[in-house]
Amino acid sequence: MRADYTAVRAASLRVLDGEFVSLVGPTGCGKSTLLNLAAGLQAPTEGEVRIFGTPSSGLNASAGYLFQTDALFPWRTALDNVAIGLELRGVVREQARERAREWLQRVGLAAHATKYPHEMSGGMRKRAALAQMLILEPRMLLMDEPFSALDVQTRQLMENELLGLWAQARRCVLFVTHDLEEAIALSNRVVVLSAGPASHPIAEYEVDLPRPRDVQEIAMHPRFVELHRAIWSALKQEVMKAHGHAFL
C-alpha cells in the first residue's frame, strides 16, 4: 500500500450492536482500509475508532476478521487451524481441540478435520477460516470480500450458512463486498462509498427485507429488486468515476 495514497477521508461510519452492515463501492475506494481501521491493523491518520463506545487504539481484541485471501496456517490441519485462537489464549491444547471439533461440526467440516489447507477446496478453506474466527466468539465480525474467490454455487451456500450462524448469535458485522446482490441479501443496511481517493460514504440504505432469508429466494422479492435499482443508481456513478468513464 502506498503511504501517500489517501484512500479514505472524512468518512464516518457507525455500526450498531447486532447489526449486519455491508460496505459497497468501486474498487480502490478504501473499503478494506475502513475495515483495517476497525480491526486496528491500521491506525487512522486523523479521527478515531470507537469500539462499543470506547476509543480504541491498537488491535481491536473484540473483533474477528475474515480475510479475502486464504489466511489459514498451511502447516496446521483444519482442526488445529480452528483451535489456534484458543491455544494462543492459553487454553490447554486438548480442550482447544475439543471445542474446535464442535466448530468444525457446525461449519460442516467434521469429516475433514485432519486435512491440511492445501488438501481442501476453496469452500472448505473458507468454512475453516469462518470457524477459526467464530470459535473466539468475537463481538464484531469484520469481513473483507470473504466469498469473492468462490464459485457462484459455493458462494450462495456459504452466504446462507453465514446468515444461519449469524442468526444464532447476532453480532455486529461489517461486511465489505463489491457485489451489490450479496450486500442486499445479507445486510440490514448497505452503505455506498464514493470512488477513491479520499473516499467517503455517500448513501445509506435500510434493507427492510424479512428474515430468515435465503439468498437465492430473496433476490426474487420485489422489494429486493427495488432496493437493488435504487442502490445501483447511486453506485453506478461512483463505479464510472473510478474507471474514468471508460465505459461511456
Binding site: 491493523l41 480475510f67 489466511a71 502447516w75 485462537g85 494462543l88 474466527m133
Partner: peptide, 29 residues
C-alpha cells in the same frame, strides 16, 4: 504472507507467539 501475519494477530498472537506459530514454522520450510 502478510495476510497470515494479520490473521494471527487478529486471533490474538503476541510478538513471541507470532515467532513461534508463524515465523518458525515458515522458516522450517
Amino acid at each position: 504472507s502478510p495476510v497470515l501475519l494479520d490473521n494471527a494477530r487478529m486471533l490474538g498472537a503476541s510478538r513471541m507467539q507470532l515467532l513461534r506459530h508463524v515465523y518458525l514454522p515458515s522458516a522450517m520450510g
